[in-house]
Nucleic acid binder design. Sequence first.
DNA 1: CAGCTACGTTGCGTGTACTGCAACACTCAT
DNA 2: ATGAGTGTTGCAGTACACGCAACGTAGCTG
Lengths: 252, 252
Amino acid sequence: MSQTVDRALSILPLLAEGPADLGQVADRLGVHKSTALRLLRTLHEHGLVYRQSDQRYRLGARLFALAQEAMENLDIREIAHPHLTRLNDSCGHTVHLAVYEEGEVLYIDKVDSRYPVRMYSRIGKPVAITVAAVAKLLLADLPEAERRAVAEKLDYPAYTPRSTPNAPAFLTELEKVREQGWATDLGGHEESINCVAAPIRGADGRVVAAMSVSAPNVVVSADELLTLLPLVRRTADTISGEYSGRNPVTAQ
Amino acid sequence: MSQTVDRALSILPLLAEGPADLGQVADRLGVHKSTALRLLRTLHEHGLVYRQSDQRYRLGARLFALAQEAMENLDIREIAHPHLTRLNDSCGHTVHLAVYEEGEVLYIDKVDSRYPVRMYSRIGKPVAITVAAVAKLLLADLPEAERRAVAEKLDYPAYTPRSTPNAPAFLTELEKVREQGWATDLGGHEESINCVAAPIRGADGRVVAAMSVSAPNVVVSADELLTLLPLVRRTADTISGEYSGRNPVTAQ
DNA sequence: CAGCTACGTTGCGTGTACTGCAACACTCAT
DNA sequence: ATGAGTGTTGCAGTACACGCAACGTAGCTG
């Protein structure tokens, strides 16, 4: 690995915490000011950092544009989106699409026609991985070894009394999810929110993404939400079929 | 600036166009494969690129998280948001918030309660800078020299017959906008869409952001939309006041 | 206003760490 | 099997990134 690049890239998460001046950056990197300056200049030239009027540095605009383009290029999202909106039309609840990447699960799409939700507050943000229904599906499909490794490394925050408490409980839950081919989150993240989720598979049967429908208790009970399961699974299967290049699938 | 970092960062926009394999990256950088490999590995370690199952590289998840955090740290957005939603409540149209940064104008917030718009398709995306009302306001406030320099460098795509045709036309338009303290886009980007916009100023009077209300012709005529101008300007002024720390924030 | 400190910036010699080469390992087609 | 196409590794030479020290410029303080 390249030392110089490594140092330069370490600046980004540092600036993500908030603006910093040259001295602070140099200190936290453990390098001389002149070195930090050169790195910052290079980052600046690529638009990844921006120098605000008080001369301090913060993350730059190009970052948005890149994240943007990266998102647009995810073909799963492209394919899934119309199906997600259609599902949303017919049930009215929030629909999420998520993928797994290197120990993290992220939402890559969301449809919610009812409320003016600030979408970017979730898209791209790591999911509550130990409780979210989509996370369970994505992790359940990992190879045994990796699954256990990831499960061991995670924190298990007790969002609610129903949150997954620890790694063993999580692993047995994943096993169950794996068997049944779908997952739920019943008040595990927020007391009053329930979700049902189904996997989207590639041509080789591996899970490439997962989608879920979420609704608060006050609108529909958990049991009522579960009646949507067949519809969710059918939608996921349709997307799977289209993603694999097969003709729209009628299986359920 | 640093050559190594420069090369590494050049990989990012390259991958933004779509996934690429090692050879392609090396070619487009004009370096040896082993060099490209080392750079990619470093980027990978920082989560900025991801290696998909077919071994090709694409942009990684950390990018979203970073863009995310950068966004959250923009205090203008924080302050403006409740005012934007309130404006949206009272008029029902789409409301945008945008800032200028290094030759680009970007939307950093958007409220649209009516339709299930895919918000992220605009947030963070560079604005049609030659025609958008918010862009005119932001550019109009630049120092003479910079304004001209930017105007000269721009492309002037003819989105519609009413699009700004060239740099001189743009500069006179900016002059007008500067004088009157507000701006419009009447079908300059999309034939049937009109916008009115107002500037948000910092304590020193400089324009730090701009906000706009947009609506299609079929809903309200351009004249009708213009009747909203006082409301838009009042909202912008309120935000300006709060941003400058003048008016202490009152409980909502 | 002089003197101070704190900060960003510049030029330069030294030596590190980045580069490109060449050889290797591997997967697919033919 | 054999070949062409990948990605990967170790190594020697040298470009280039590093830290130093000196300078420029603010912003305080007496």
